[in-house]
Computed example of a mutant assay.
Amino acid sequence: MSLLRVSHLSMSFGGVKAVDDVSFDIEPGKLLALIGPNGAGKSTCFNIVNGQLRPSRGSVMLDGEELVGMRPRDIWRRGVGRTFQVAATFNSMTVLENVQMALLSREKRLYGLWKPAASQFEEQALALLDQVGMAAHAQRACSVLAYGDVKRVEMAIALANRPKLLLMDEPTAGMAPQERNELMALTKRLAVERNIGVLFTEHSMDVVFASADDIIVLARGKLIAQGNAHMIRNDANVQAVYFGTGKTFQPRAPLSAGGGEAPMEPRA
């Protein structure tokens, strides 16, 4: 049974069709990658699901409930979590306090507090940090963390709302290869354990092919291919439109003699 069902989604800006009759489903516990070249409509489609944009036409159903027309906060309260390309945490707060604030928001206790926030939901926050491997850093300020650890804290913040669906915008942007692999392995494990559907956009094709259960490819607003990694690698439309050269995707090259990472190709 589908957790998220997107049907005939269209969005125009003036005379430009940013998204043109796009449909796809996400099942609980599965990771769906949304990829395509620049200007393909990925961000527009992503932001429609999140409620930041209202489509010209189409439907976005979460567990049978229509999301189109709802505000982002209302969609969040119905179980749609989100992480961002640039990690969104409060740098002046500790790791623990960041997660506590998310829990306070879920319980609608951000206003008119009768006791200090630091004394509330500490146990639940620590449990979430333990799930993402950050419990040992609970009392550290987010400002001193490595970027990969900040992304883990952001994951704990997203999980605080007990999401059914997690939207991840370029989750591995700015991360080293090992950090990318670790974050996506964590995402996959949590998705399966918590039965969460995950929709993510990503430029790194090694991340997409290694992590996604299914992949959808957009080009000029249209869905041109959908399937698993093997199907997408070998799809003629994807090779011609997305990769541009007509060649299939080539794995990441070995490290160069100087220790730097060889450029990955192709990139959107």
Rank of each mutant, 00 (worst) to 15 (best):
L129W: 12
A240D: 12
E179F: 09
D235K: 09
R77L: 03
N234C: 02
L166G: 09
M1S: 14
A173Q: 04
R194C: 03
G112C: 04
L223W: 00
P72F: 06
R189S: 02
L3H: 08
R71I: 06
N161E: 03
A33I: 08
F84Y: 12
A229T: 09
A158W: 09
R71G: 13
Q239V: 10
P55H: 03
N98V: 00
G174C: 00
N228F: 07
V86H: 14
Q120D: 04
L199Y: 04
H203W: 04
I232F: 09
L3V: 08
T83H: 10
I215W: 11
R54D: 02
A268C: 05
Q178D: 10
Y111F: 15
P254C: 05
A240P: 03
P28F: 07
L113R: 02
D63T: 12
S256C: 07
V208H: 01
S7Y: 11
E265Q: 11
V208S: 02
V60M: 05
I48L: 13
E154Y: 08
K222T: 08
M134G: 03
L126R: 15
I224F: 00
A191T: 03
E66W: 07
V49Y: 04
I48Y: 05
A229Q: 12
C45M: 14
Y111L: 15
M70G: 02
T89C: 13
D213E: 06
A158K: 15
K151L: 09
E261F: 12
R180E: 03
G197P: 07
N161C: 07
G36R: 11
L159I: 06
R220K: 13
V49S: 00
T44V: 06
V68Y: 12
M264W: 06
A160T: 09
D149P: 07
L103T: 08
G244L: 08
Q100R: 05
T187C: 08
G174L: 01
P37D: 05
E193T: 06
D149I: 00
R194V: 03
V144R: 05
R140G: 04
L53Y: 13
S105G: 12
Y111D: 15
L3N: 10
R220Q: 14
G258H: 12
V80D: 02
D74H: 09
S2W: 11
L4D: 13
P116S: 14
